[in-house]
Simulated assay, not measured.
Amino acid sequence: MDYIILDIEFNGRKFASDHPMEVIEIGAVRLDSSLQYKDEFSSLIKPIYFSTLNSFIKKKTGIPQEEIDVADRFPKVITDFREWLDLSTDGVLLLTWGGEDMKRIIQDVRIHKMDVSYWLAAPYFDLLKGVLRARGLSNDISVEGAMALFELDPSGSAHRALDDARMTSEIFRAVFNELDFERVQHYKDTFSNARERKTVKIAIKAITAQKIVPTWDLVAEHYFPEKTLADPRKLAELQDYFAAQVNKS
């Protein structure tokens, strides 16, 4: 089995919009089962929405607008990427820094009405969480922070997909023997975000501090605007999360 260290960049926006942000760059490094470098993949993508990069994204990534303008669209790039992945005849394990990369790829596959089954079935390992568990850390750290943690020399440009994938592959090598690969997972759709789930935890703590038994109705009434819970899928997910947190405490 080969290890595929994956990173993506996506476009941003400065204002609220119903249009989604899209992947604008995919970078990946392939390591063999002995953690030896084999090859890599890199491609820019011209998005449908917000195809003119705003100043923040241009400054953050350094991606030239001129290269985005002539890049292939997502269906072509993701097809090329799949073909590159399939060169690993004994299968692959995707490694990402956090869960956002898989979410963004699957979102774009769906936007373009492509078959999503490969990505839903693909095993992946969240290396960020793996590092946090291995080193007993409670707060998220960046790729650059992890490079410093493991005393590795950073190279390339942060926030360019291939350079980030290269640096992440070095972190993976450094922490490999400390990782719990029982934590390999498959993508699962989520309808709430990290901030909303954190709000649930804060609400439980605050209500309990007042010597009141926390209930979902109290949390919903005092900590969430009604429109936030309008999606029944998000509502059900946050209710389940609330129940799990109450049981844990």
Rank of each mutant, 00 (worst) to 15 (best):
M1D: 07
M1H: 06
D2A: 10
D2Y: 13
D2R: 14
E9L: 05
F10C: 02
F10T: 01
F10L: 03
N11R: 05
G12E: 04
R13P: 02
K14D: 14
A16S: 12
S17A: 05
M21L: 08
E25W: 05
E25N: 07
G27K: 06
R30E: 08
R30L: 00
L35W: 05
L35R: 13
Q36H: 10
D39A: 07
E40G: 05
F41Y: 14
L44N: 07
Y49R: 08
S51W: 03
L53Q: 07
S55M: 12
S55F: 13
I57E: 09
I68P: 01
I68E: 02
V70K: 03
A71R: 01
D72L: 14
F74D: 15
V77I: 15
T79E: 04
T79H: 09
R82D: 06
R82C: 11
E83H: 08
E83W: 04
L85S: 04
L85G: 03
S88N: 06
L93D: 02
L94E: 01
E100Q: 07
D101M: 04
D101E: 12
I105Q: 14
I106P: 03
Q107M: 14
Q107E: 13
Q107F: 13
R110M: 15
V116Q: 10
S117F: 12
Y118E: 07
P123L: 04
F125H: 00
A134Q: 07
S138H: 09
N139F: 12
V143L: 15
A146V: 06
L149N: 10
R160K: 09
D163V: 13
T168E: 10
E170F: 14
I171A: 09
F172Q: 02
R173N: 07
R173M: 08
V184L: 03
F191E: 01
A194K: 14
R195S: 12
V200D: 06
V200P: 07
K201P: 00
K201L: 06
K201R: 12
I202R: 02
I204F: 06
I204Y: 04
A206Y: 00
I207D: 13
V213Q: 01
P214E: 00
T215M: 02
T215W: 05
T215A: 02
W216K: 11
L218D: 00
A220P: 05
F224R: 12
E226Y: 11
L229R: 11
L229M: 11
P232F: 12
K234D: 05
L235I: 10
L238R: 10
L238A: 12
Q239P: 07
A244C: 09
K248R: 14
K248T: 01
S249P: 00
S249I: 13
